[in-house]
Design a binder for these strands. Structure first.
Lengths: 278, 278
DNA sequence: TTCGCCATAGAATATCTGTTCCATTTTTCT
DNA sequence: AGAAAAATGGAACAGATATTCTATGGCGAA
């Protein structure tokens, strides 16, 4: 079985694992998937600790290593360690690697680079200017809300739909407005001043998002907004609002920063509800 | 001596070593300089092997670790290892870290930092391992498709809903499956081999996404998949698939990398349709 | 010098580590 | 359904590991 030649670098090993995993016994498959998912654990852990984490017997780990063609677990572990060594050590090589990639870069991979850059830049921007006090205020409002109404259309809809999903999982009552049905108006008209509207809209502001928010505002429903400019129609009516300017590539704006903020609000609100005040 | 709180991250430790190295006994100074010069030896080696390499006694290494405020060598070694494992810091570690530098860090802003780090890391990971050839193949398939069926539920739904929106704006015929209505099966059953299914699913794979994709595959509809492991049920049925592993913070996975890839596919497909072949 | 103190070397030790082995269960094939 | 083969769990074991301990060496102060 030991093919005499077995992978000494992580990439080949990963390939071999993926290749053989199909025809492997149950427990060994379990190890295989754990290994690919937690390579760092394999690199630094001990047989015992990994066994616990992967929920198998220590002996299974050894058998797995052997079935991949190694003499024992330690042998296989070396490969996982080499991955970490190489990664940090050759930072220069990494740049070189990127530069080479650029040479035979396809159109699509250039686009990917562009979007990734835009995402990174957006994240860095928001990190610099996000005001913790405002964040705190928004979390407080949302945590106290009876029901959270999520308003976002078009480009913002993925954000609100994510929040709705996450809030749902966390057991926080929420209402996703303007999904598909179209009868958004109806839903939002139930909102009272004990609820909170979280409105998300960017240039060019979807008119429905704005009119819905304004209507809610007219009925004294407090509003938290995420938007991209002090001139946004959401700014004047929101009790607190965040300015998030996403970088764009070829006219397509990133959503990374907004999403990061959305996740933060979601989790922080859940956290606040668990231990209020503080 | 043990200052009760001693560095748990490499940067702070490095600083402390440099700071104290001056007033240290001969042998300990020797260890200090060796440690700073060969950090990965410390991370990977054993007390015995490092002792030989640094030309000191094993016990000296232990004394060094203790003089830096750690309980023993293993304790100090953990810090050197943390440098290599690019794990996202968890909430407690982050709080601890910020306590020293940034005093007015609120709970929510700590969370925001965590999500931003997770997003950045995910993007970097994907940048390194995304294969341009695969990307090209997927773009080609999608560009030739009659209709693109977008399949993604739960956590993946924001992604597909974004793509549906963007494709729509670009005039590319697409069908968003499993939105809200629930009659997803119906929609997808119209797909033929001239269409393409773009399926997105991550652990734990939403059963409906999987069964829909399998049904389409059985009818010879080509599939492009975005998933997180070679063991994903989407991998074997997809004609081409992308492995995207998002970093997570406190159990909530980032979506930044997936989104970046999704935007790339969208724009690249539109581009390809405008100038085909190329 | 002589004393006292700290640093060091190196052996001793108790713990932990990877590996092996065998009985038991599960799967496969006839 | 029964027999053979494979896979698994769990304990046993030999070797390696980090740490502790003690004797020795070096150095400054009186």
């Amino acid at each position: 079985m030991t093919d005499a030649e077995n992978p000494r670098d992580y990439a080949s090993l990963k390939f071999r694992i993926a290749e053989r995993a199909g025809g492997l016994p149950r427990r060994l498959t379990q190890v295989a998937s754990y290994a690919l998912e937690h390579p760092d654990e394999i690199a630094f852990g001990t047989v015992a600790s990994i066994a616990v984490a992967a929920d198998v017997q220590p002996s299974t780990l050894v058998r797995f290593a052997q079935s991949m063609g190694y003499q024992g677990f330690s042998d296989l572990q070396d490969v996982f360690r080499s991955r970490l060594r190489d990664r940090i050590l050759n930072y220069d090589e990494r740049l070189e690697h990127l530069r080479q990639h650029d040479l035979n870069a396809t159109k699509a991979s250039v686009i990917f680079g562009g979007f990734s850059d835009a995402a990174q830049k957006s994240l860095n921007d928001l990190r610099e200017k996000l005001d913790p006090a405002k964040l705190e205020e928004a979390v407080e409002m949302l945590a106290k809300a009876d029901t959270i109404y999520l308003v976002g259309l078009r480009r913002s809809f993925p954000i609100t739909s994510y929040m709705s999903y996450a809030f749902g999982k966390l057991g926080i009552r929420n209402h996703l407005i303007g999904a598909m049905g179209g009868l958004a108006q109806e839903d939002l008209s139930f909102a009272t001043k004990k609820d909170v509207v979280l409105a998300i809209s960017f240039t060019p502001y979807a008119s429905e998002t704005i009119s819905l928010s304004q209507a809610a505002h007219a009925r004294n429903v407090p509003i938290v907004a995420i938007t991209d400019s002090p001139f946004s129609p959401l700014a004047p009516i929101a009790r607190t609002w965040f300015e998030v300017t996403e970088a764009n590539f070829e006219g397509f704006r990133s959503m990374a920063a907004t999403l990061s903020l959305a996740m933060t609000l979601t989790v922080a609100v859940a956290e606040r509800r668990r231990n209020p005040k503080n």
